[in-house]
Amino acid sequence: MALGGNPIFNGKNFRGATQAPPVPSYTHGQPQYGQPQYGQPQYGQPAWAAQPPMTSDQLQEMYNQPAAGPAETGRMTFDDVIVKTAACLAVLLLGAAVTLFVAPGTANLLMIVGALGGFALGMVNSFKKQPSPALILTYAGLEGLFLGGLTRLLDGMFPGVGLQAVIGTLAVFGVTLALFKSGKVRATPKAVRFFMIAMLGYLVFAVINMVLVWTGAVQSPFGLSSSVHIFGIPLGVFIGILAIGLAAFSLVMDFTSIEQGVRQGAPEKYSWTAAFGLTVTLVWLYVEIIRLLAILRGDD
């Protein structure tokens, strides 16, 4: 894949993804140089093995047949990606529904299991050379447990943030897709470099913040995000807006990778890789939005 694709795709799953073999073409009239005519045996081939000549009706029927498309030649299509992404999201929603309807204690336990299991399978799927539909769907289910438990926890503290986060995630996804299709937003090399620098800074902050919360150095459940204020605004608001912007640009990288995969004729199985990449980004986007909403509500 070219520069600008999602790191989940680059240098790993699409490596060696070549186009399906071309469909043979048939020409009317004289045969090409070095090709035998219909009904004539090749050199050294017995006459009884020669193919009978095709009738004019057979030739016309062959000529009228439509050219084979990506689906007929086993290549990835946008429809494949849509269907498999929908399957991942359906499994994710099923996992979320489980944590929403069980006892609170069980929901918290499932949330932890989903977070740890989802992270582990996310790493496995990211570094796995060939996509595994079973592992990708299992990842989606575990992330559903995590998101369902997180939503239940935060929605109990700040009623309504769950629905607002869902609406916000859909809105960001829709706007990003529309801007990408219009050509106004592209994953250019310069933009990708900025993304990588900003992402590194965000990860450093996230690790430091997590350590401070775990060690009890900061008592706030969101750590520095809600305990530090800049001009009266929680630090988490600025960090959250940055993170949502990074997640939105990651969607652009996903769309770029999918578009290039379809254009280059990647095998159909890599539509699972595309679905996995989109699922990872949407999970990240939802977490950042619901966390930002919770910080804003908690500061009221």
Results as ranks from 00 to 15, higher is better:
residue 284 W to N: 11
residue 165 A to S: 14
residue 200 L to K: 06
residue 130 Q to R: 10
residue 199 M to N: 07
residue 196 M to F: 13
residue 71 A to R: 07
residue 64 N to S: 13
residue 18 T to M: 10
residue 284 W to Y: 08
residue 236 G to W: 04
residue 284 W to V: 05
residue 59 L to Y: 00
residue 177 L to V: 14
residue 198 A to W: 00
residue 178 A to F: 07
residue 73 T to I: 13
residue 182 S to I: 00
residue 176 T to R: 05
residue 17 A to V: 02
residue 224 L to K: 02
residue 209 N to D: 15
residue 234 P to W: 09
residue 298 G to F: 10
residue 147 L to P: 00
residue 173 F to Q: 08
residue 85 T to D: 09
residue 167 I to K: 01
residue 179 L to T: 01
residue 271 S to Q: 06
residue 43 Y to P: 08
residue 209 N to L: 03
residue 36 P to Y: 05
residue 127 F to H: 08
residue 293 L to P: 06
residue 181 K to W: 03
residue 138 T to H: 01
residue 60 Q to S: 12
residue 259 E to G: 02
residue 272 W to N: 11
residue 101 F to S: 14
residue 245 G to H: 03
residue 256 T to D: 08
residue 229 H to F: 15
residue 292 L to T: 15
residue 74 G to R: 06
residue 138 T to C: 13
residue 54 M to I: 13
residue 115 A to H: 01
residue 119 F to K: 00
residue 115 A to K: 00
residue 279 T to I: 07
residue 48 W to T: 12
residue 162 G to V: 05
residue 229 H to R: 15
residue 298 G to A: 14
residue 7 P to G: 09
residue 66 P to G: 10
residue 119 F to T: 11
residue 297 R to T: 09
residue 172 V to A: 11
residue 169 T to P: 02
residue 66 P to L: 11
residue 79 D to K: 04
residue 126 S to M: 14
residue 257 S to R: 06
residue 175 V to T: 09
residue 17 A to T: 02
residue 155 D to A: 04
residue 238 F to S: 09
residue 92 L to R: 00
residue 17 A to C: 14
residue 33 Y to F: 13
residue 168 G to W: 03
residue 250 S to P: 01
residue 34 G to D: 11
residue 298 G to R: 05
residue 131 P to V: 09
residue 163 L to I: 12
residue 293 L to V: 09
residue 213 V to F: 00
residue 261 G to C: 12
residue 253 M to P: 01
residue 212 L to N: 02
residue 93 L to R: 03
residue 164 Q to V: 05
residue 116 L to R: 00
residue 128 K to N: 15
residue 174 G to V: 11
residue 171 A to D: 04
residue 169 T to N: 06
residue 290 I to L: 10
residue 56 S to I: 07
residue 217 A to G: 10
residue 215 T to V: 14
residue 294 A to E: 09
residue 78 F to E: 07
residue 96 A to M: 13
residue 81 V to W: 06
residue 56 S to M: 13
residue 172 V to S: 10
residue 6 N to M: 14
residue 169 T to G: 14
residue 231 F to R: 08
residue 195 F to R: 11
residue 61 E to W: 01
residue 124 V to N: 04
residue 122 G to P: 02
residue 176 T to C: 11
residue 169 T to C: 14
residue 209 N to T: 03
residue 85 T to N: 05
residue 300 D to I: 02
residue 145 L to C: 12
residue 220 S to V: 02
residue 261 G to P: 07
residue 123 M to G: 03
residue 154 L to C: 03
residue 109 L to E: 00
residue 2 A to P: 15
residue 99 T to D: 03
residue 172 V to R: 06
residue 152 R to L: 11
residue 138 T to R: 04
residue 212 L to P: 01
residue 233 I to S: 10
residue 211 V to C: 04
residue 68 A to G: 01
residue 174 G to F: 08
residue 195 F to G: 07
residue 238 F to P: 02
residue 143 E to S: 10
residue 62 M to H: 04
residue 135 L to S: 14
residue 273 T to S: 15
residue 106 T to S: 13
residue 25 S to I: 12
residue 16 G to M: 08
residue 65 Q to W: 06
